[in-house]
Amino acid sequence: MKFALSPEQAQFADTLDALLAKSDVARAWAAGDHEPGLAVWRHLADLGVTSVAQDGEPVDLVVAMEAVGFHALPGPAIETLAVLPGHTDGALLATVAIPPHVPYAVDAHVAERVFVLRNGVLFTGTPGQRISSVDPCRALFEVTPATEVGPLDGAFDRGVLACSAQLLGAGRALLARSVDYVKQRTQFGKPIGSFQAVKHQLASVHVGLELARPVVYGAALNAVPVSAAKIAAGDAAYRAARTALQVHGAIGYTVENDLSLWLSKVRALHTAWGTGSVHRARVMATLTRPAGPH
């Protein structure tokens, strides 16, 4: 047993980190200027990131999605990387709706391929009305099924795993930004990070994220259901978001501050791909499934 990234996986993570750290494309994407973001996606495709679910192991997918979350990269990442590999037909980005838990297709105006998955059967989709999300980087579209493509197994679970990893990355970014901020913001003549009320909240966030991470990677190795990963990562990231906003004070409650990119992303992803309640029901169902030969 070695429950740690292999040297190749660690290097893959570092490469993604270095690439995405330089990209600052979320605000343009939210404003409708997708070109800078698409340039990053083309770069990722060249590196093989968009086909990671086909070419690699689920752990590699988690590594990629954690980086996407950490750097708040916009675009239908879960859909393209985790759900639809093999169905992109050479297109850069693809998106899908999987009712009831994924009622809309994200960024269907940017993705070249749009699908709907109904009862395990994939259809091409025709985008309809656009609905705005709490996350300005996520444009939501109603989709109606057009042509049947065929059965697609495990799509929802792969999406849930990818969403968990994205939440985990976003949560880690929120903690990192908060730690930086409380070290430099001064009140009462001291950095606010020296106050115990601030320290203890951030310590709790750290504990939550540290214990969520192995659940996400464990789900990639089938040690726990992906629903457990969504619950653990969703709750840890959400706590990170609430705490980040609180320790930033009013500056965090502004659109100008970059914190808002992660705050809105985490709020959106917390209920996307199945709420905590949906996933808790799924976990309990697996725990109480009668033991039998199958």
Binding site: L211, P214, A228, V283, M284
Partner: peptide, 16 residues
């Protein structure tokens, strides 16, 4: 469910 996940999380964290 949260208790069960917590125990699994601690187990996996420990393997890390």
């Amino acid at each position: 469910v949260d208790a069960w996940i917590g125990a699994q999380a601690y187990r996996l964290y420990t393997f890390g």
